[in-house]
Amino acid sequence: MKKMRKLAAMTIAAAVAATSMTGFTAFAEGETYRVCFIARASADTFAAWLTDSMKKAADQYDDIELTCVSGEADDNTMATLLEDCITKEYDLVIVQSNNNAAQAPYVKQVADAGIPVITTNPTTHQSDLDGVTGDEEVDNAVMAGTGTVDADPVEQASRGAIRAVDEVPENGNVVVLRGPSGNYHAEKRREAWDTYFFSERPDVTILYEDYANWNNDEAMTLMETWTQGGTHIDAIISMNDNMAAGAIEAIRNNSEYINEDGTPNFLAYGVDGTAQGCMLVKEGLLTATALQNAEEIANLNMEYAEKVLNGEMEYTDVADFVEAPEINADNVDEFIQIYIDNGELTEDALAE
């Protein structure tokens, strides 16, 4: 896949000076480097996929020893883990924030300690650290002193939103499942739906909208409650596949939403293109999703980590963004095959 690269330079002299001020040991050729990856939550299917992919990617480098930990979607836990990275003097830290603004000060602490930091899925921005009030202009630059590997959440969500303009029935009723408040990807994906769908379809009514925090069980509970309202839901608009899967599970055996021939009487849109999401597309229950390739993100993180640790590039020059191809009924088989090839799905599971 092609990637958009946005590189911002920082001189080696400045980096060396920061390192000297903190007393952190400079890198030496031939060492084994200790890298910590902090995932946002182990129960999050994408975060779990990314964690597993990080481990596989790290195995390709003899000079990287990777430790993976989870913040369990708790900001206090995330803060403790980031502070722990300083105490344990990791050589490089990769952070997948749960709440950008909450984690930003602790990410800065790690960077200020002279430890290279790469933020990933989502990027930590300067505005996350500085805070934004009123009509103040948002600084979407990568936070100073960090690098990033990410995907564009607006591009991701726009895939489903654009097609939904023509697919959602006139005067349709929809529900919206949101990711964690304060999470960059969650907020930007929701903004994309406003831009590409709701602004184009003023006839559509949002029956219900709530935070399910990327979580399957929370989304299932919300959907069970919403269907009790008595008004048919024409479309589920979810900011990720995991929440969409939970909502779909809540109505899988509901005759109002599943026709006698097994076809759905609703539409559903997600993001991530996980194995679970692809299987739901294949089943006809998820209308479309967009791939956020955890393997590609993990491989890039480890590639850049290794280059940084061996002095081949500055970590503040790391700025790479993967694309988000749409997955739908027409092309889902090629993405399922990827998961079969990497062992996440089996031919037997596909046949069930």
Rank of each mutant, 00 (worst) to 15 (best):
V168W: 04
L207D: 05
Q337S: 09
A14W: 00
Y106S: 08
D44H: 15
N215K: 10
D330V: 11
T22D: 07
D241Y: 14
L222G: 02
E295R: 14
I118R: 03
E83I: 01
D317F: 10
L7C: 09
R189Y: 05
L177S: 12
A324G: 01
E65N: 12
E167L: 15
S158L: 06
M223C: 09
V271D: 00
I94K: 02
L81N: 01
N259R: 13
I206T: 14
V168M: 10
N265V: 08
R159L: 09
D341G: 09
I94N: 02
E249H: 14
V281Y: 11
L291N: 04
L177F: 15
G284Y: 02
Y257I: 12
E136P: 00
N242P: 01
Y33V: 01
Y61V: 08
G284V: 06
Y208F: 13
V35N: 03
L291D: 05
S255I: 08
N99Q: 13
L50Q: 14
Q156T: 12
V132S: 12
D74F: 03
R178G: 04
E29D: 11
A219F: 02
V149T: 04
E312F: 03
D330I: 06
D234N: 11
I115K: 02
E170S: 12
A39L: 00
L309T: 09
I94C: 02
Y339D: 10
M220N: 14
Y339P: 05
L286H: 09
V16L: 14
D234R: 01
V69G: 05
T11E: 15
N342V: 10
I118H: 03
V332F: 12
K3V: 08
D333G: 07
A15E: 13
M243W: 06
R159N: 11
I236M: 10
D139N: 15
K88F: 02
G229Y: 09
K282W: 11
E312K: 13
Q276N: 14
N293S: 14
L207Q: 05
T19Q: 14
N140S: 10
M54N: 02
T77S: 12
E334P: 01
A298I: 01
D210H: 09
T51P: 00
A28N: 11
T32D: 05
A57W: 01
G172H: 09
R34H: 13
D74R: 05
V95M: 01
H125D: 08
L285C: 06
R201M: 04
A305I: 07
A235I: 07
E200N: 14
D44R: 03
E224Y: 08
T133P: 00
D75H: 03
A186C: 07
Y304V: 05
V318Q: 03
N140W: 15
A305G: 01
N215D: 15
N253V: 05
A329V: 13
H232Y: 00
T346R: 09
F27T: 10
E260L: 11
H185M: 02
L300D: 08
N140E: 13
N216H: 14
K2C: 01
A288I: 08
D330Y: 08
R40K: 14
I336H: 13
D194E: 15
A186H: 07
I206L: 03
M1L: 11
N121R: 09
